[in-house]
Computed example of a mutant assay.
Amino acid sequence: MKPVPVLLGGLLRASENVGPGEVAAKHPHTYQFCVWQAEKLGIPIRFPEHHPFLTVTPQRLLAQQNADWAMVERAFDYVWIEGKDPNLSWPDFCAYLGLPADTPKPDSPDIKALLIANTKQAREDGAFGVPALIVKQHCFWGLDTIDWTLDYLARPQMFEEASYAYAANVPNGLL
């Protein structure tokens, strides 16, 4: 499995949704949950001085570099352990990723198109937010679905079982 950089804003717009930072009550709830979850897992966490911030340029860099999991993890560490916004400290961010500090911010039409294409493909595959794992045409969205994903990998016929098929087709009483 390979990480694929996408534009969260593009996924949110496509599903007519907004991010937690755009909902007043959801903002502190989500961020405090992140702190709690990190404590439970023994993972250090330090929020950047402001969040959300624009991720398009760092995502372009990851796409341009054809980033592997190690580079993506370093990018996450820079934001969530170091507590820094890559846009405000670009040379340090690049060096943190193991790239030359003078790496320019990606701005080529090809990289922009690649990130847009990645986002479009993710939408077509069923993603509507991040993090999302697409496994055999099933979208597992959010940190809390990792165990579900692992169960699915161990039980690949899961979605063909009657209860799952029924749950997927329950009529929406609000429409």
Rank of each mutant, 00 (worst) to 15 (best):
W148E: 15
D144W: 10
T149V: 12
C139E: 14
L150E: 07
W141K: 04
L143P: 03
P131I: 00
L143I: 08
T149K: 06
L150I: 05
L133N: 02
G129K: 06
I146W: 12
D144H: 11
K136Y: 08
V135F: 15
C139V: 07
V130H: 01
R123F: 14
A127I: 14
I146K: 03
W141F: 05
W148V: 06
D147T: 08
G129Y: 01
G142N: 04
A122F: 01
E124I: 07
G142V: 05
I134D: 08
I146A: 14
V130A: 04
P131F: 05
G126C: 02
F140M: 13
W148N: 15
Q137C: 14
F128S: 12
F128Y: 06
D151K: 04
W141N: 09
A132Y: 04
I146R: 07
L133M: 15
D125T: 13
P131S: 04
H138N: 01
D151P: 01
D125K: 08
R123E: 00
V130F: 00
D151Y: 12
L133C: 08
W148R: 14
F140I: 06
W148L: 07
A122G: 06
V135K: 05
P131M: 09
E124L: 15
I134H: 12
A127D: 04
A127P: 10
A122E: 09
F128D: 14
D144C: 02
R123H: 02
L150Q: 14
H138K: 10
C139F: 07
G126H: 06
